[in-house]
């Protein structure tokens, strides 16, 4: 029972991160019908930028309470610029090209970003500075610490804010209109390029936040961290129904829970044959199962609609 509760907590924390990253995939897919496979690398860049800024600020004796939000803002700004640039350079020139073309540039951008990150930050793991006295709290035999609480609360706030923007503002209305019919949106006076850029920047800001969250939670950042995280968040987006915002949030949380419960019990289930290091298997098992049995995802509509 304690393991169960503990894995639920871990799953919710990790799921919050997946949800934030999955939103970036799904927003771009919703508006352009393309999968931005470079998105995972944006998360990594966000984590690296935040970590560098944090280390520098702490080195200058800035108080952690100021250094944390400052480095988060810096990472968000950097990632927004990066997201904007990726769209301009890799996707916009190919807007009317066959669908395979932007997929290939996406992979190209990922490779470039990974290698750039490796050149800038090196191959080693970077430790996240110990800033706050990460207090553990005991509930029903399980433990949740301050950073985890902050992650979940921030994720909920950000997702609520995003839903408000998308459903209650003029910008959000324009985003939904562009997603549905670009020509008709232009006839309303919408500058679709601007809306598309803003969508990339919003998704990238969420990626930066997620990047900081993961590295704070695990205490580590690494130039290669975006690959697996991106793939899992993409899985979460597909699980929820790609193109659907609520789906991305639901898919993220579910995937986090599946993974952590799976990791918690895989040893028991296989009689000790497989250990928790196999937890990554669950995400891909979920991806395959969804693609085979329900390609539209939990909340999505027919995928073929946008072919």
């Amino acid at each position: 029972m304690e393991i169960f509760l503990q894995q639920i907590i871990n799953g919710l924390v990790q799921g919050s991160v997946y949800a934030l990253v999955a939103l970036g995939y799904t927003m771009v897919y919703g508006i352009l019908g393309l999968i931005n496979f470079a998105h995972g690398e944006v998360v990594m860049v966000g984590a690296m930028l935040a970590l560098s800024a944090l280390t520098a600020l702490i080195g200058w004796d800035v108080s952690p309470l100021l250094a944390l939000p400052l480095s988060l803002i810096l990472a968000m700004a950097g990632c927004m610029a990066l997201g904007y640039g990726i769209e301009r350079v890799a996707y916009r020139p190919l807007r009317h090209a066959p669908r395979l073309a932007p997929l290939i540039t996406a992979i190209g951008v990922s490779i470039v970003l990974q290698n750039l990150a490796m050149m800038i930050w090196g191959r080693e793991y970077h430790a996240f500075p110990q800033l706050i006295n990460n207090q553990p709290h005991h509930i029903g035999g399980a433990i949740i610490n301050d950073i985890q609480i902050i992650i979940v609360i921030m994720a909920v706030m950000i997702m609520t804010g995003l839903m408000l923007v998308v459903h209650r503002t003029r910008l959000g209305r324009a985003m939904r209109a562009v997603a549905e019919n670009q020509h008709a949106a232009q006839l309303m006076g919408v500058d679709i390029n601007r809306v598309i850029s803003i969508t990339f920047m919003l998704g990238s800001a969420l990626a930066a936040i997620a990047g900081l969250m993961v590295s704070a939670n695990y205490g580590l950042a690494h130039y290669y961290m975006g690959f697996m995280l991106g793939l899992k968040a993409f899985t979460a987006a597909v699980l929820g129904g790609i193109g659907n915002l609520r789906g991305a949030m639901l898919g993220g949380l579910l995937l986090g829970l599946i993974e952590s419960l799976g990791a918690g019990y895989i040893g028991d289930l296989t009689g000790g044959f497989l250990g928790s290091q196999y937890q990554d298997v669950f995400a891909f098992f979920v991806l395959i199962a969804v693609l085979v049995f329900r390609p539209s995802g939990l909340l999505g509509e027919r995928l073929a609609e946008r072919a």
């Binding site: 209305r173 939904r176 209109a177 549905e180 019919n181 020509h183 008709a184 006839l187």
Partner: peptide, 8 residues
């Protein structure tokens, strides 16, 4: 074909 936004 009108081009209304069906999901708005």
């Amino acid at each position: 074909g009108r081009g209304v936004f069906a999901r708005l």
